[in-house]
Simulated assay, not measured.
Amino acid sequence: MLYRVFDAAELPALVSAFMDGYEVVAPVKRGAHYSFEAISSPDEMDLAYDTTLASPKRYFLPPTETLMRYNAATNEVADFQEEVVPRVIFGAHACDINAINRLDLVFSDGRYPDPYYKARRAATLIVGVSCSPDSDCFCNLWDADEARFGYDLFLHRLGDKFLVSISSVEAANILESAVDLRDATNEDRIEFRHATRARQAAFNPDIPEIQDVAMLMDAFHSDPFWEELGSKCLACNACAAVCPTCFCFDIQDVLDPDGQTGERQRIWDACTSPQFAVVAGGHNFRPTGRERVRHRMYHKLNGFLATYDRMLCVGCGRCVKACKADINPIRVLEFFEKKGAEGAC
């Protein structure tokens, strides 16, 4: 891993250098909120954001995508050929980079790699940027507050300069051509340590830090808490829409007006949807809100961990803001804290 320093005033030049050969997607302010969007000028980008409404996930796993086209009259099937755009995700926070790393485990590194996801991932460079947590962030609890891999460049803001971590040759070449790089000094490293400590101290201390969450998910699997939580669920799926690691999908065949040709689409789905676990014959394996909410939390905090040795939740806090019924992992942590206090009495 290489570390270099450049002046913050040169940031627009770096963005412009990427725009010469890539579509650049960056955080843009829209009203009171931020979103990742393709930009046409460095001036549109705002790196001083707390969080975006949704993650960059849709640039790897779109909400709707065509997998193939078919002709029912001739019984012919044709793979759908989508143009994959060389792209840079500029300004991703560590939690979102860790979320992409988790998606990679499922769609790139698994037994059956997904060719659509892999093509987009291979064509995308990721430039991360350091951040300060807001009151809903708890990425530090899941070891997702630092990105140790999964990026090409990572920018740490230190006053009027950036300390940049370099992990790919392609991005390094663009960086060197765009800005005046210099070696990091001991003073730069000391500033970096101070900035890191300040960020760590900024996390909300009211969010419980619970050990052995996965084990507790098993221990309290039948607790009435899940009925209380599930009864409030509106099944709006806002949590899954904003989550950077939700990857469930449905497959639908969409006919053209002629009734003969059409396309097969993959669309986002969510385990909180009442129809998600319905199978042929009409049986629903999770018919109640209690079962659906518990399953979602179990997958985030236990099931994925058992398979991939890391939480599926990265603690970005988006679901905390999105859920109108106040259902989120923080409430689960508070429940475990309460149970621990009761057991100590």
Score class of each variant (00 low, 15 high):
115 P>C: 06
112 Y>H: 15
110 G>K: 05
103 L>H: 08
115 P>F: 02
96 D>T: 05
87 R>N: 14
118 K>I: 09
99 A>H: 03
108 S>G: 04
89 I>T: 08
99 A>E: 03
104 D>V: 08
111 R>Q: 15
102 R>Q: 07
120 R>G: 03
88 V>T: 09
93 H>Y: 04
116 Y>D: 09
110 G>R: 04
107 F>D: 05
93 H>P: 08
88 V>H: 08
94 A>H: 02
106 V>C: 02
95 C>P: 03
116 Y>I: 10
89 I>G: 12
109 D>Y: 09
93 H>G: 11
87 R>P: 05
96 D>S: 12
99 A>L: 10
115 P>E: 08
117 Y>I: 04
101 N>T: 12
97 I>Y: 01
104 D>P: 06
92 A>W: 01
95 C>G: 07
87 R>K: 15
92 A>Q: 04
85 V>W: 03
101 N>S: 13
99 A>K: 02
99 A>Q: 05
91 G>Y: 00
116 Y>N: 11
95 C>N: 05
92 A>S: 15
92 A>H: 02
87 R>F: 14
121 R>W: 10
119 A>W: 10
105 L>W: 00
88 V>R: 04
102 R>A: 02
116 Y>H: 14
119 A>L: 12
103 L>Q: 10
94 A>P: 02
91 G>V: 01
118 K>Q: 13
113 P>H: 06
114 D>N: 13
105 L>N: 07
95 C>D: 02
97 I>S: 01
84 V>Q: 13
103 L>M: 14
115 P>R: 07
109 D>N: 13
